[in-house]
Computed example of a mutant assay.
Amino acid sequence: MTTPSSLTTPPDLRPLQAIGRAIEAAGGWIGFDRFMALALYSPGWGYYTNESRKFGLMPAGKGGKDGEPGGGSDFVTAPELSPRFGQALARQVGQALQATGTAEVWEFGAGSGALALQLLQALGAQVERYTIVDLSGSLRARQQAKLAAHAGKVHWVTELPARMRGVVVGNEVLDAMPVQLLARVAGVWHERGVALHDDRLVYADRPTALRPPVEVPGEHDYVTEIHPQGEGFVRTLADKLEAGAVFLLDYGFPEHEYYHPQRSMGTVMCHRGHLSDGDALADVGRKDITAHVNFTGVALAGQEAGLQVLGYTSQGRFLLNCGLLDGMEGGVDSANLAERAMVQKLIAEHEMGELFKVIAFAKGPLWEPMGFSAGDRSHTL
């Protein structure tokens, strides 16, 4: 394949050419996990490394500033919906810092910096150092601007040290980690990868010994994911964390729901302009690619590596346990109604409250986190 220099290649062709080179170097086929890593994290054009606006309440073309009502964006995360999200989570993080005798917060994939700002404002002197682990240079620039008032506490790293102490927070981090696709076709399991055909990216299947962690009943065609990178991430945290706690918030299911026989199309989804689609091979680098989280696999990976599960529950229950609604009993003016509407999105079952889950781990003595004081579902993992 002829590949002109990046200086003369139109931006829309860079992803195809870069992925094409990777496919050729691998003998004509790469796994979906390799494709997903390239699409999201390739320097310069990958979705999380390019300059496109990502976080906000509205799609592009609606006016306003990025990250504010009307700002151009692809999707909204909980901290952008309401500062009450970070304030509630801060109560849990503050309890964890005290219980573990630590004073540092580690945030993975800090996005716009909204959650970091909310945690820093709420926790104050409890946090001596706030470390952000983020591979995106463009997002780091936004974070630095938003967190300028806390410049003395906030630090950025692209890789972890040999040893860590403190409380780890990851909001919508696991869903962006590359997954492997498995496809049962005519009763035979394949790994679904990506190839080139007539200069187009296409799916291509190869027979494999890989299997989902549980048997999927039936002989019908079935597509799903396995999550070695996400589970490896949790093992790495377990290895490096000397003392502290881990709180991971994301959308997903326990294993028995994730690999339900009727969930036959998998969970890979793309997000752009506040719309969703299932075609990961189109508009590469210009939209997010995600997969739901298998929280049973996450829990087992942590336990096997030396972490203890502190709790697992829905985001709605977790936030309510952490006092999300405290102080919302005031008058019902227009501003108050708008705030209530956003808070409702965080906890309603048909919004983020049920689809999103929270899992927590401890390294060191066990203690009782407030976020799981009612409605803990650890027994369902």
Rank of each mutant, 00 (worst) to 15 (best):
V293E: 01
A245C: 10
L300D: 13
A282W: 13
D288H: 03
F253I: 02
F233A: 00
D239F: 05
G252E: 03
Y222I: 07
V293F: 01
A245H: 05
R206N: 12
A282T: 12
G232E: 09
E231M: 09
D277I: 04
F247R: 00
K287C: 04
P254T: 08
F253Q: 07
R286N: 13
G244M: 06
P217Q: 05
P228Y: 05
Q308H: 11
L307I: 09
T290D: 06
V284K: 14
G302N: 12
G218D: 06
Y259E: 12
E242A: 12
P207R: 14
E225S: 03
P254W: 00
R263E: 06
A245Q: 08
P217S: 05
A238M: 08
L281T: 13
V234R: 01
E215Y: 02
G302K: 03
L300F: 04
S276W: 09
Y222S: 07
H260W: 07
T224Y: 06
V216H: 09
D221L: 02
D250H: 00
A299Y: 09
E225C: 01
M269S: 12
S264L: 05
E257D: 13
F233H: 02
D277C: 10
K240D: 10
H274K: 08
A305T: 11
T208K: 10
P261G: 05
T236R: 14
E257N: 02
P213F: 03
H274M: 09
H274P: 08
M269T: 15
E257P: 01
L275A: 11
D288P: 04
H292V: 00
A282F: 10
F247I: 13
P261H: 08
G302Y: 06
Q303P: 02
G218V: 07
A291I: 04
G297I: 04
G306I: 10
L281P: 14
H220N: 12
S276I: 14
L241F: 02
P217A: 09
R206Y: 13
V216S: 07
V284L: 14
G266P: 08
T208E: 14
G218N: 06
G278L: 11
G232H: 02
F247N: 02
K287Y: 09
P213S: 09
Q262N: 13
D283C: 08
K240Q: 15
P217V: 06
G306P: 08
H220D: 15
I289W: 11
A238Y: 09
V298F: 01
Q303F: 00
A301N: 03
G266S: 09
G306M: 10
A209M: 13
V284C: 12
L249H: 00
A305P: 10
E231P: 01
H260A: 13
G311A: 04
G232F: 02
G302P: 09
A280W: 11
N294C: 08
